[in-house]
Design a protein around this nucleic acid. Structure first.
Lengths: 210, 210
DNA sequence: TGTCGTTTGTCAGTAGCTGTCACTAGTCTG
DNA sequence: CAGACTAGTGACAGCTACTGACAAACGACA
């Protein structure tokens, strides 16, 4: 067996500890609730000290957003990959759809997809998490706006269109996410369906008479 | 002087304590920074115990969002007041503008307008506050969506247009707020100007070719 | 003036998070 | 392969936001 490419024992041990904290944390959060789960409980469940938990995750919340981070960064990558002839809003739409299609392949090795989908519900029903989630969203939006601006060759500091496009698209996606997580059908199919319906409602919503 | 309509000494004392905590808190936050100001410091500056602080404000953050709450509820009231012939998005636009016009009259007796404007900057440069601010925003959005739905006689649970309209409008307003608070000109006039420019950019941003 | 109810301060305690220090167990070097 | 180095860890102490319990202080009102 090749040991040269494989990380050392120390590294593997670290990886295992992180994964354990992540999975046990998410499991405890989604079953018991975020607020009702203490850091000490997660640490104890994985049999490490509280201090060690904080060496792997800067905060309790980081457990929740670790997988989210992966998915979101993939979304941004996908945006940068879209063909040049696509209109900005269409770029974002296609990227969202494409990400939901790949979701299984991209995270399954870390956590079960079903657990990840339940995380959205956890976020939207936990005020403290929702707040952080929304802040993270607009941080991504800033990055996306810059990418779209570069794509279209405009300056985001003087031309409001990139940020406005991303902001309004994000606003609609937030509504979609909220509706999806509140509804009973927490599946990728349901999310795709809702996304289509909401994005198609943009023009009608802007129209003069309803 | 009429003492019958005037609240008693106890009530006035309470009012004074609350106002003092609010103003001193905002002053300390905007000068020293939010994280670097402790609740104990605010309490001490007003010469009450820490426990008393928490009897007036449920949390440190509530100092920051007390005036915001007033302004935002006035915004929602304004929306409900708009003439029936105005299109939904136009309703929100007019309400925003109208609120910025009245901002002086509505809060000046509580805190100086200038201090309130600086609060937006504080919020947008303090991650913890920004997170809460965004969550509060989407909570208002839900209320506004219901008002607009009722106005137009549609069911928000089946027709996506009310929430989509509010969500995308909110998304654009967030971009506006962010840009404004990051820029050098923290005035009502600058905010009005930016709002107009961003809202006018919605249609161009959605267009196929930039 | 004295009683009653509200407001307040004090004290103790919890949860999230950080700094410090010493110990142990991988890892690297000669 | 032995000894030095270093990263990961646990134990402990401390800070800040926040809460509950109880008693003292104070305004309201007869």
């Amino acid at each position: 067996m090749d040991t040269a490419t494989r990380p050392g024992l120390r590294e593997r041990k670290k990886q295992r500890t992180r994964d354990a904290l992540l999975r046990r944390g998410l499991e405890l959060f989604t079953t018991r609730g975020y607020e009702r789960t203490t850091v000490d409980e997660i640490a104890e469940a994985v049999d490490v000290s509280q201090r060690t938990f904080f060496r792997y995750f800067a905060g309790k919340e980081d457990i929740v957003f670790f997988v989210q981070e992966m998915v979101e960064s993939q979304y941004v990558t996908e945006i940068a990959r879209r063909p040049a002839e696509e209109a900005p809003v269409e770029v974002m739409r296609q990227a969202v759809m494409s990400c939901w299609d790949r979701i299984g392949a991209s995270i399954e090795q870390l956590v079960p997809v079903e657990l990840h989908l339940r995380t959205y519900q956890l976020i939207w029903e936990t005020p403290a998490l929702l707040a952080i989630h929304l802040r993270r969203s607009i941080e991504w939006e800033e990055k996306i706006a810059r990418i779209l601006a570069a794509r279209e060759g405009v300056d985001p500091e003087t031309d409001p269109r990139p940020r406005v496009a991303v902001g309004l698209f994000g606003g609609v996606m937030r509504v979609t996410e909220r509706t999806w997580s509140a509804g009973g059908d927490l599946t990728v199919a349901a999310m795709r369906d809702l996304t289509t319906r909401h994005l198609d409602a943009i023009a009608p919503a802007l129209a003069r008479g309803w």
